[in-house]
Structure formats: C-alpha cells, structure tokens
C-alpha cells in the first residue's frame, strides 16, 4: 500500500511540474474569459451563463488533461525506459498501475479544486458566491466522469502507443458523451426489433448522461434522489473493470 502511495505521489509531482499542464491551464482561463465576454452580449441571467460556461470549462479542461496526460502515463515510461529501474525495486506491477492511476486522480482533484476556486471568484464578482455550494454535486460528477476517462487512458497506455491510445480514449469519451442521445434518436426512428438490439447495446457502451447533472442545477431543475449515488456507483463500476483489465494486461506484458 505504501509503495502504491509512493508511486502515486511521485507521479503527481512529476506531472504537476510538467509545462504542458500550465499551457492547458492558461487555455482554460482563456475559455473562462470568453465565457465572461459572451455574457456581455447575451440576453438572460448572467450568473446562469457564467455557471454554464464555468462548469463546461472545468469539464473540458479535466477531460483534456485526463486524455493527454493519462495516455502517456505508462507509455512514456516504457519508451523512455524509466520503468526498468522502477520495476527492479520491490514494487509489483499491480502496485505500479494503481499508483499511476491514483497519481493522476490526485492531479485531477487538485486541478478541479483550483478551477472551482476561480469559478467561485467569478460567481463572487457577479454577486452569487453561494451558488458554488449548489454546484458541488455537478463538480463531483465531472470528477467521476473524468476518473473513468483516466482509467481508460491508463488501460490504453498499458496496451498501445500514445497516438493510438489517445484516439481510443477520445473515442471512449465521444461514445460516452453521445451514446444516450444517439440511442434515443435511433430507437425512436427504427423498428421495434432494431430498437431492442440498440437498447441492449446501450448497456455495453459508456453513458455519461449518468454524470450530467449540471444542466439540472444551473437551470434550477433540482436533483433526483439517487442520481449522485448511482453516478458514483456507475463510475466505480467502470473504473474497477477497466483498471482490473489494465493490471491483467500489464502483468502479462514484457517490458522491453
């Protein structure tokens, strides 16, 4: 356990000092800025627009970070051969994969907290700082969704090279983000039998609609009782399966 925490800590430390992180961070601030600029030209509640843009930016930034840092987590170590001295120490491959995953999770937690603070400052500036409390469930589900993306990025990182890994992880994200609407659209425009097949397929495909509660919160629709609980369970379910697969593949992999 302590070895896994050690790997997680140094993974976090290595990534938090990565210049790419700061480039992405400034990009996120830029998006925030654009959001504010749009409020000046829009009709409607400014706080709603700020909230919508803010949550969307947190989600987008977390997703980009999860994909582009996540896919290089193991692959970079394989290609640079930093893995050899590490695995020569009394560290199991399982501890290594888990350490890498939790290191990345730790980075995302810090990033989300940091972005939320900026978000809070904006809400304060527009006279609604108390709204952030309302949005905590939405930020939490963004974290859950990002965690599943990190898990898939780790899996891809143990299996294939970064470019292919990035494409597979992006495909996972796109599938997750669109599957609900896609299935809904198809099943309402096709025969009953095809609709049954598509509905069955829906259980195999990732479905990020379970994490999408921000619209409900921003526009005051409220939360359904078990939505957060189910989202947590759903994320955990995906993570356990995907990380287990990562561990199985990585244990069977020859480290050349």
């Amino acid at each position: 356990m302590s070895r896994m925490i050690n790997v997680a800590y140094y993974t976090f430390l290595e990534m938090v000092r990565n210049k790419v992180l700061y480039v992405l961070f400034f990009f996120a601030l830029f998006i925030f800025g654009i959001g504010i600029a749009i409020t000046q030209m829009s009709i409607g509640d400014v706080v709603d627009i700020i909230s919508d843009t803010g949550l969307a930016t947190i989600e987008m930034f977390s997703t980009v970070l999860a994909i582009f840092l996540g896919i290089s987590l193991v692959q970079k170590e394989l290609s640079l051969k930093t893995l050899h001295p590490l695995l020569s120490k009394p560290l199991s491959r399982t501890e290594y994969v888990l350490g890498k995953f939790f290191g990345m999770i730790f980075l995302i937690i810090v990033e989300i907290i940091f972005m939320s603070l900026i978000f809070l400052v904006l809400l304060y500036f527009y006279g609604a700082p108390g709204r952030l409390i309302t949005y905590i469930p939405a930020i939490y589900t963004i974290f859950l969704q990002t965690s599943t993306i990190i898990a898939v990025a780790v899996l891809c990182s143990t299996l294939t090279e970064p470019t292919v890994g990035a494409m597979l992880t992006i495909s996972f994200y796109i599938t997750g983000a669109t599957s609900y609407n896609l299935v809904y659209a198809i099943t309402h425009r096709t025969s009953e039998n095809v609709a049954k097949v598509i509905n069955t397929l829906r259980f195999i495909l990732p479905d990020f609609s379970h994490f999408n509660i921000k619209d409900n919160l921003v526009y005051g629709k409220g939360l359904e009782g078990l939505q957060i609980g189910f989202a947590s369970f759903y994320a955990l379910f995906i993570i356990v399966i995907v990380i287990s697969l990562s561990i199985i593949f990585f244990n069977a992999k020859e480290i050349n």
Binding site: Y10, L13, N18, L80, K81, H84, P85, P90
Partner: peptide
C-alpha cells in the same frame, strides 16, 4: 523478496525529468 537484494542500473538510464 529477490528484488530487495538486487540493484539494477539499466543501459543509458533515463529518469523522471521533473524530479
């Protein structure tokens, strides 16, 4: 247990650049 007793130096070692 074996790994606790082995020290390994790889060929052309490269380590974490940010540490």
């Amino acid at each position: 247990e074996v790994k606790k007793t082995i020290g390994f130096l790889p060929e052309r070692p490269y380590f974490y650049a940010q540490l």
